[in-house]
Design a protein around this nucleic acid. Structure first.
Length: 315
RNA sequence: UUUGAUUAUUGGUC
């Protein structure tokens, strides 16, 4: 049983829910009954990869089999419902678990808070955040990070600052994601200098900025044409021995295109290829847009042809 | 190490 569970888990993580399902049926053929963990793992695998309604089917099936869903089950199903935008159902599931005597834990709340803010329902996310506190479920670092990121996307940085303070007051440790989320919100709100202050602060408290940190700050600086500072950070990233990856190249290419420096963007695209980093659909979209803005329609068309030849599907 | 939640890149809309 544990071997099968582990297999299903691995296939889910590898983004192969179809194979995971095959194993699920194969184990039963071999006389091995799935337990709660098997279902949880399968539901998670399906829910993550766009098979959300199937995830729900297996949720029903496990109940029919007389198995009791637990917090793991509900967080996986609620996440799947949220991804489909079925928030009424997600809320019903919360109610259902309460009725079954299974108190929603911090994972379940955080999952739904995250899905609500991702779907643009920041207000509902906020009330759920308040509700969990009232219900005696203490938000942890991940919950705060989730809410801070949601507020940042909604441009509500005052609230985000309040939460940051609240985290400190509650003795929670801030991590790189906390800082990254704050800095991303600030750069969206055109407060890049505030973001740079936090960047200094995070280093002062001994946190090591990751790639995402640099990506956020470099985007923010590029957008307002502070290219010198952006370039300096790009050098710093390399000093930290972070190899520029696809996302970093996409950010720089977008920055150059935005500034009308499409020729430089083109050479950077060559350079990324030489580094063994293959352009993806975002790279092509960005370049095609940049070329189009300059009226270079023929070159745009060529890139469009090239992306299809390379098996990169236009979106 | 048998299962669950958080941050970044292109376009449109606000």
């Amino acid at each position: 049983l544990q071997t099968y569970n582990a297999l299903i888990y691995g296939l889910g993580k590898a983004g192969r829910p179809g194979k995971a399902k095959e194993i699920f049926y194969e184990m039963q053929k071999n006389g091995c009954r799935p337990d709660v963990i098997t279902y949880n793992t399968l539901i998670y695998a399906l829910g993550k990869t766009g098979e959300q309604s199937e995830a729900y089917d297996y949720f029903k099936e496990m109940k029919q089999q007389g198995l009791n869903p637990d917090g793991f089950t509900y967080s996986a199903v609620i996440n799947a419902m949220g991804l489909m935008g079925h928030f009424e159902e997600a809320c019903n599931l919360m109610t259902e678990m309460k009725e079954l005597g299974c108190k929603p834990d911090v994972y379940v709340y955080s999952t739904l808070v995250n899905r609500l803010s991702k779907a643009g329902y920041v207000d509902r996310a906020w009330s759920l955040f308040r509700e969990m506190k009232e219900q005696g479920c203490e938000p942890n670092r991940v919950t705060y990070n989730t809410v801070i990121a949601g507020l940042g996307k909604a441009g509500e940085m005052d609230e985000a600052w309040n939460l940051l303070r609240e985290m400190k007051e509650n003795g929670l440790t801030l991590d790189v994601i906390t800082y990254n989320s704050m800095m991303d919100g600030l750069r969206r709100a055109d407060q890049i200098d505030e973001a740079l202050k936090l960047f200094k602060e995070m280093k002062d408290v001994g946190l090591v900025p990751d790639r995402v940190t640099y990506h956020i700050l470099i985007i923010g600086l590029c957008v307002i044409n502070r290219t010198g500072a952006a370039w300096a950070l790009f050098q710093e990233l390399k000093e930290r021995k972070y190899v520029p990856d696809l996302i970093m190249y996409n950010i720089l290419i977008a920055g150059l295109c935005r500034a009308g420096l499409v020729k430089d963007a083109e050479s950077l695209m060559k350079e990324m290829r030489d580094d063994g980093c293959l352009p993806d659909v975002i790279t092509y979209n960005t370049m095609i847009g940049g070329l189009g803005n300059l009226g270079r329609y023929e070159d745009a068309r060529k890139l469009y042809a090239e992306m299809k030849e390379r098996g990169c599907t236009p979106d």
